[in-house]
C-alpha cells in the first residue's frame, strides 16, 4: 500500500478532525510519566513519549469489562462497541496486541475481546524517546509487528504515514497528506532502525536458548528463592505487562439488587490468591503457595511456556515490569542473565 507524508504543522488539525467523529486514544502526559487516554484535544497528544504506565491493550481489553448482564431471569449479551482509533502505539505494543489477538482467538474466539479489537484502528508510531529499561531490540527480534493499520514515523519536518490496511487508508482523507518522496521513506526507515540501534538494554541469547535454559532451571529452587526474595507479590509486573491477559470474573448487582453484570478484571499470577482454591469450611489450597513459585511461573510463561504457540517469547521488551517493580527484581534482562550465568 501507499506511503504518505504529513507536514509537522498539519498533525494537530489531522488529529482534531479525527476527534470530531471518533473516540481517539493516544499517549498523554501524567505528571512526569505517560498514559494512554482518550484525547480531548489534539494538543494533549505526546508522540514523544518513551513508554506508558499501562500498555494500550487497555483500550481493547479494559481493566474491567462486562462479559454479560444478568437479571433473576437469566443472562443477556452486552452491547457492541463503537469504533475507536488507538493512536501512537509503539511497535513493541503492536507485537503484544498481536499476541493477545492470538490468545483470544485460539480455541474459543472471545468476542468480548475481538469485537473491541475489530472496532479499533491502530496507528502505530515511531519511538522518539527510549526508556532506559527498554530491551525491545533484542527480544523476539524476528517477530515483526503485524496488527497495526498504519505506521506514523517522525522525521525532519513532519511524519511519514505508511498504510497497511484499508482502515489505515480510511484516515488520510481527514488530513493534508501528500505522497511521500523516496527520501522521506528512507528517512523514516532510518529513524526506526536508529530506535533499535539505540535500545539500551540487551539480552544476548537466542529465544530458543533462553526458553530451553530457563525451562531447565525450573527445579533450581535456590535460584528462584534468590530472585524472588524481595518480591511483594504485588503483581505490578503482571498489571503493567502488555502480553499478560489473565483475568478474574465476578458478579456485581446493580443498585436495584436484582440486575447486574458479570465482569472480568485483570488478574496477576504473582498475586497470592491467583491459584488458591476453596476446600470448604474456610480451608484453602494454593497450587503456587510461595512467592518464588509465582515469580517462576511468570518467568516461565514469558520465556518458555507460550513460545510454541507464538513463535517467540511472550515478551516484547517494553521494560514496564522493570520500571514498575519497586524492589527492582522483575527485569527480564537481569532475570534471564542470572539464569543463563548458571
Amino acid at each position: 500500500m501507499k506511503t504518505y507524508f504529513l507536514p509537522q504543522h498539519e498533525l494537530p488539525s489531522f488529529v482534531s478532525t479525527l476527534l470530531q467523529t471518533t473516540r481517539v486514544i493516544g499517549p498523554v502526559a501524567k505528571k512526569h510519566k505517560f498514559v494512554f487516554a482518550r484525547l480531548a484535544s489534539a494538543d494533549e497528544l505526546r508522540l514523544d513519549y518513551d513508554v506508558t504506565i499501562l500498555p494500550p491493550k487497555k483500550a481493547i481489553f479494559p481493566q474491567t469489562q462486562p462479559l454479560l448482564k444478568f437479571s433473576p431471569e437469566g443472562y443477556e449479551d452486552v452491547g457492541t462497541p463503537q469504533p475507536q482509533i488507538l493512536f501512537g502505539v509503539h511497535f513493541y505494543d503492536v507485537k503484544a496486541l498481536d499476541m493477545l489477538d492470538e490468545f483470544f482467538t485460539d480455541g474459543h474466539a472471545d468476542r468480548r475481546y475481538l469485537d473491541n479489537r475489530e472496532a479499533t484502528t491502530i496507528v502505530a508510531s515511531s519511538i522518539q524517546h527510549i526508556n532506559e529499561r527498554a530491551f525491545f531490540a533484542s527480544v523476539g527480534a524476528d517477530v515483526k509487528p503485524r496488527g497495526h493499520d498504519a505506521f506514523l514515523t517522525a522525521i525532519e519536518g513532519g511524519y511519514v504515514y505508511e498504510i497497511l490496511t484499508d482502515k489505515g487508508e480510511a484516515l488520510i482523507k481527514h488530513g493534508s497528506f501528500r505522497a511521500a518522496t523516496g527520501d522521506e521513506v528512507s528517512s523514516a526507515y532510518a529513524a526506526n532502525a536508529e530506535a533499535l540501534d539505540k535500545c539500551p538494554q540487551h539480552i544476548y541469547h537466542s529465544t530458543r536458548e533462553i526458553g530451553r535454559r530457563v525451562r531447565a532451571a525450573f527445579g533450581r529452587d535456590e535460584v528462584w528463592d534468590e530472585l524472588a526474595e524481595k518480591c511483594f507479590s504485588c503483581g505490578t509486573c503482571n498489571t503493567t505487562c502488555p502480553t499478560c491477559y489473565c483475568f478474574d470474573v465476578q458478579d456485581k448487582w446493580n443498585l436495584d439488587q436484582a440486575s447486574g453484570v458479570r465482569e472480568r478484571t485483570w488478574d496477576g499470577c504473582l498475586l497470592d490468591d491467583f491459584a488458591r482454591v476453596s476446600l470448604g469450611e474456610g480451608a484453602t489450597d494454593n497450587f503456587r503457595e510461595k512467592a518464588a513459585q509465582r515469580f517462576r511461573h511468570r518467568v516461565m510463561r514469558k520465556t518458555s511456556y507460550l513460545n510454541e504457540k507464538l513463535g517467540g517469547p511472550a515478551c516484547v521488551g517494553c521494560g514496564r515490569c522493570a520500571i514498575g517493580c519497586v524492589p527492582d527484581i522483575a527485569d527480564p534482562v537481569r532475570i534471564i542473565n542470572r539464569i543463563m550465568e548458571g
Binding site: D106, F247, D248, V249, V277, L306
Partner: peptide, 24 residues
C-alpha cells in the same frame, strides 16, 4: 485434575499447569 478455574475456555489463566490449561 482439579484447579482453580474462572473462564473454562483457556483464557483466564488460573488453571494453567506449565503450558497446559486444565480446563481446555
Amino acid at each position: 485434575l482439579e484447579r482453580r478455574m474462572k473462564c473454562g475456555v483457556g483464557k483466564c489463566g488460573h488453571c494453567q499447569i506449565n503450558n497446559l490449561y486444565v480446563c481446555c
